[in-house]
Structure formats: structure tokens, C-alpha cells
Simulated assay, not measured.
Amino acid sequence: MSPLPVDAAPPPLRLIAPSLPRRMACWLYEGVLLFGVVFIAGYLFSALTQTRHALDNRHAQQAFLFVVLGIYFTWFWHKGQTLAMKTWHIRVVDRRGEPLTQARALWRYVLSWSWFLPPLVLREWLQLPALEVLVLLGGWIAVWALLARFHPERQFWHDAWAGTRLVDSRTLPMRVAP
């Protein structure tokens, strides 16, 4: 067999999705790490606004945390992975396997709220108590995660809609920064 010519194109990149249990373990670990991010951001908000009671400025604080989390995820997804994703060898890329633009990472952040938004909308619509919302939320998260099994490439649906995908970072070639 003769070696490939120097100008030959490399073989197409095979993007392998991590297993669902591994992605969900990463998701839970991300939640643990976000506790610190939300704690510090909430403390900063309370200190800057001189909020003395948790329900004062509640909607402004929720909007602030939405923006802080958006910055956090957009920044790290644009770089390829969060700390939790790095720990579980998961990387987020676009459909071709390229790093995300900040706009695509932001769009993925907005669409990723599909993990939580349907039960929260139902809570407001039906005025459900907190315990029922937690049960509904847990059920929805399980359903949303399992729906990935129906995607042809085993991706979460919000990733498909955002034009992104989660891949096993150990299968990607090393990229050298310019």
C-alpha cells in the first residue's frame, strides 16, 4: 500500500455522542458547580442593590442570574466545554465538529431552558405548590433526557435545534491554537 499524498484530504471526522448516563452525570455535576456561581452572583446582586429580604427585587435578581448564567455558559461553550464537561470528556461543537461561535453558544443557552421551562410555565398556569412542581420538574427532566434516544444521532433536541452536538472529546483530534 502506498502512503497518502501530502495534499490528500484527511478522512471525515466521526463525531461520537457520549452515552446518556455520562451526559446526565455531567449535567448533575454542572448543577453542583452552578451552586457556587449562583451563590456568588446572588450575593453580589444583594450587596449592590442593598436587598435585605430574599423576596425583595426577586424578578430583578432572577433576570440578573439569567444573564450571569448566560454569560457563564456562552463563554465556556464558545471555548468548547465547561469544567463539568471537561471532567466527563464531553465537548460541545457545531454540526461539522467545529467550535461554537458565541452567537451559536448563546442560542444553545436560550434553547437549553427547555429542560426547565415547560414545568415552570405549568406552575404559573396551574398555580401548583412547590412539591408538585419538583415532581413535575423531575419527570420532565427524565422525559427530556430520554427523548434523546429518538434523535438519529442520540443528541438532545435543544442541541439539534441549536445546530450543536455533544461529542466525546477523546475522539476529537487535537487542535493547535493559531
Results as ranks from 00 to 15, higher is better:
L122D: 03
P119T: 12
V32Y: 14
E98G: 12
W125I: 05
V68M: 06
F45N: 09
L69M: 15
P99V: 13
P118L: 07
T49W: 03
L28K: 06
V32K: 15
Q102T: 12
I90H: 04
H53R: 00
L83N: 08
W27H: 12
L122R: 07
R96N: 14
V67Q: 06
G70R: 07
W115R: 12
A25F: 10
N57P: 01
Q102C: 04
H89R: 13
V92L: 14
A25R: 02
W75V: 15
Y109H: 09
Y29V: 13
R58D: 01
W77M: 13
T49N: 11
M24E: 01
G70Q: 11
M24G: 02
N57K: 01
G36S: 05
P129I: 07
W125V: 12
R23A: 07
S46G: 15
L34D: 05
S114T: 09
L13G: 08
L33V: 10
P10Y: 07
V32L: 15
C26M: 11
A54C: 00
L55Q: 12
V92G: 04
A84G: 08
R52Y: 02
T82K: 01
R14K: 11
I90M: 11
F116T: 15
Q102Y: 07
Q61Y: 03
L13K: 13
H89C: 08
